[in-house]
Amino acid sequence: MSLLTPEPGLLFWMLISFGITVFVLAKFGFPAILKSVEKRKNYIDESIVAARKAYEQLANIKETGEAILTEARKEQTDILKEASLKQGIMIERAREEARIESEKLIASARQQILAEKEEALLSIRKEAATLSLTIAERILREKLGTEQEQKKMIERLFNEMDISRS
């Protein structure tokens, strides 16, 4: 018996063992393995489809987000413009009210100044009249110290009055 040439009986039993093994594997092993491989293939395909859908949804969400962001920026710009216009209107209105109020205050101050001026002039006139009378009284007392001087003065005043009436 040589190591390189097998005996026919050994070959026969090896073929029968191999055939049984192939039959058992073909009957029970390969379907289970193929079934498992098919499940794995289906799972991978489903995962790829789900990943594509998720990618598409993400792209749609990104586009929607950008559209919302663009719209929000536009609304922000519109709101800022409107606020700026309202601010300008409010400032102009406040300026106008302040101008009207200042004109009222100035007019009131002018009236008050005129009233105080008139009052001061009246007071000065009264004081001047009082001083004039007091001075005239003192002068007359000094000049008309005697009765004869008083009669001369009265006659002279009557004469002047008659001349001015004529």
Rank of each mutant, 00 (worst) to 15 (best):
residue 97 E to P: 00
residue 37 V to A: 09
residue 103 E to H: 01
residue 104 K to M: 09
residue 52 R to Q: 07
residue 88 G to V: 06
residue 79 I to F: 14
residue 38 E to A: 12
residue 72 A to D: 11
residue 79 I to K: 14
residue 99 R to G: 00
residue 71 E to P: 01
residue 75 E to R: 13
residue 100 I to M: 02
residue 109 A to W: 02
residue 107 A to L: 03
residue 37 V to S: 13
residue 58 L to K: 15
residue 75 E to G: 09
residue 80 L to R: 14
residue 58 L to S: 12
residue 76 Q to P: 03
residue 51 A to I: 02
residue 99 R to F: 02
residue 49 V to H: 09
residue 106 I to H: 04
residue 44 I to D: 03
residue 54 A to F: 02
residue 57 Q to M: 14
residue 108 S to C: 08
residue 113 I to D: 13
residue 104 K to T: 02
residue 109 A to F: 04
residue 66 E to W: 03
residue 93 R to C: 03
residue 39 K to M: 03
residue 93 R to N: 05
residue 99 R to L: 02
residue 93 R to L: 05
residue 101 E to T: 01
residue 109 A to C: 05
residue 95 R to Y: 03
residue 45 D to E: 13
residue 106 I to G: 02
residue 95 R to H: 10
residue 113 I to H: 07
residue 77 T to H: 10
residue 98 A to C: 01
residue 90 M to R: 15
residue 90 M to I: 07
residue 38 E to S: 11
residue 42 N to E: 10
residue 56 E to R: 09
residue 54 A to E: 03
residue 102 S to P: 00
residue 51 A to F: 05
residue 85 L to F: 11
residue 56 E to Q: 09
residue 76 Q to K: 05
residue 78 D to F: 06
residue 95 R to E: 04
residue 106 I to S: 06
residue 55 Y to L: 08
residue 91 I to W: 02
residue 93 R to M: 04
residue 91 I to T: 04
residue 83 A to I: 14
residue 37 V to H: 09
residue 73 R to Q: 09
residue 47 S to I: 12
residue 57 Q to K: 12
residue 64 T to P: 03
residue 69 L to W: 15
residue 72 A to W: 05
residue 71 E to Y: 05
residue 99 R to K: 12
residue 112 Q to F: 12
residue 114 L to M: 13
residue 83 A to P: 01
residue 101 E to D: 03
residue 43 Y to F: 15
residue 98 A to D: 02
residue 52 R to E: 14
residue 87 Q to G: 09
residue 78 D to W: 06
residue 63 E to I: 11
residue 80 L to E: 15
residue 106 I to R: 11
residue 37 V to Y: 08
residue 105 L to V: 06
residue 65 G to T: 00
residue 93 R to T: 02
residue 91 I to V: 10
residue 114 L to I: 15
residue 41 K to T: 03
residue 68 I to V: 07
residue 57 Q to W: 07
residue 110 R to S: 09
residue 39 K to I: 02
residue 73 R to T: 11
residue 42 N to T: 12
residue 112 Q to L: 08
residue 42 N to R: 13
residue 84 S to F: 05
residue 105 L to S: 08
residue 47 S to H: 15
residue 93 R to H: 05
residue 104 K to L: 04
residue 112 Q to S: 07
residue 73 R to H: 13
residue 94 A to T: 00
residue 46 E to L: 05
residue 69 L to F: 14
residue 94 A to F: 01
residue 97 E to D: 00
residue 94 A to R: 00
residue 66 E to I: 03
residue 76 Q to Y: 12
residue 111 Q to T: 06
residue 94 A to M: 01
residue 40 R to T: 05
residue 81 K to L: 08
residue 55 Y to H: 10
residue 64 T to N: 10
residue 103 E to C: 01
residue 66 E to H: 04
residue 45 D to M: 12
residue 84 S to N: 14
residue 41 K to P: 00
residue 58 L to M: 06
residue 48 I to K: 07
residue 82 E to P: 00
residue 62 K to S: 15
residue 38 E to H: 08
residue 105 L to K: 08
residue 112 Q to A: 14
residue 36 S to D: 13
residue 41 K to A: 06
residue 86 K to Y: 03
residue 41 K to D: 04
residue 94 A to W: 00
residue 64 T to R: 10
residue 60 N to E: 13
residue 114 L to D: 14
residue 82 E to A: 11
residue 41 K to M: 07
residue 79 I to M: 07
residue 100 I to D: 00
residue 57 Q to C: 06
residue 69 L to E: 12
residue 59 A to R: 10
residue 72 A to R: 06
residue 54 A to H: 02
